[in-house]
Simulated assay, not measured.
Amino acid sequence: MLDSASHDRGGWALFLDVDGTLLELAETPQGVHVSPALKQLLEDVRWRLDGALALVSGRSLANLDQLFSPLRFIASGVHGCERRTAEGQVLRPEVDAATIARVRNQLAEFVRGHEGLLLEDKHYALAVHFRRAPEMQDEVYRIMSEVQAQLGSVFALQAGKSVLELRPGAWTKGSSIESFMQEAPFAGRKPIFIGDDVTDEDAFAVVNAMDGLSIRVGHPSVPTRARHRLGGVSEVLRWLKSTPPVVPPPPAQ
């Protein structure tokens, strides 16, 4: 357990995934809604931690700002490819725009030819969602693997829940947490990261190496590097409301 309210304020840095962690998953990325109650909860937790809270998401920073408006969080987006510091500086990779445009057009043509697929354009990354067409999973993996092979090792494939994403390979959610932990207001604290997906596993490893708290959201049968588990979004929100938070039981082995 986090042993006191003062420890809660002075000792912890909290990093939160969004979809599947703070918000229930929807059929499309646009199908989610952030309630006023959730915004107020995050504002309260940010205050309790003296500002040491960041969103760590696969969504873009622009999309996060739109969802949580008028709040604006320290955050990393597109699986670590974009990162906004406490001072508001936004760090992004340099990407060959012409190459991305060519791939975007190729994937857009593929998606148009298959009902139920959705292409999500994150500028630096491209994701194909197949939640509404699960029978297309193998075909999505085939075309995305072909595109990744064209681009080479600079880009990587990132699997998620009913989605496959092509993104710059040098950045991850884990690398973004490592960077945040070297800066105010996170430096000198212990990290907590809560996530729900395979895209969060590298961040769990980073947090474990820092002797922090790694918390996986979801069914206990799913293998994970996280050392603790919460059952779902409602449990995450209940955990965040507690003062101080209580560490959940470790995941089943």
Score class of each variant (00 low, 15 high):
H7G: 14
G11I: 02
G11Q: 15
D19R: 09
L23Y: 04
E27K: 05
E27L: 10
T28N: 03
V34H: 04
A37Y: 02
K39S: 09
V45M: 05
L53A: 00
A54S: 07
L55M: 03
S60L: 09
L61E: 10
L61Y: 11
A62Q: 14
F68L: 11
I74G: 00
A75P: 13
E82T: 09
R83D: 00
A86F: 05
G88D: 14
V90T: 15
E94R: 13
D96H: 06
D96W: 03
A97D: 08
V103Q: 14
V111Q: 05
V111A: 07
R112T: 06
H123F: 05
Y124N: 04
V128K: 02
H129I: 07
R132P: 01
R132V: 03
Q137C: 02
V140H: 02
I143S: 00
A149T: 06
F155I: 10
G160C: 05
V163S: 04
L164H: 02
R167W: 01
W171R: 14
S175F: 03
E178S: 13
Q182F: 01
P185Y: 15
I192H: 00
D196G: 09
D200I: 03
D200H: 07
D202V: 00
A209T: 12
R216V: 07
G218K: 09
S221P: 02
R227I: 12
L230K: 02
R238E: 15
W239P: 05
S242G: 12
T243F: 12
P251A: 11
Q253E: 14
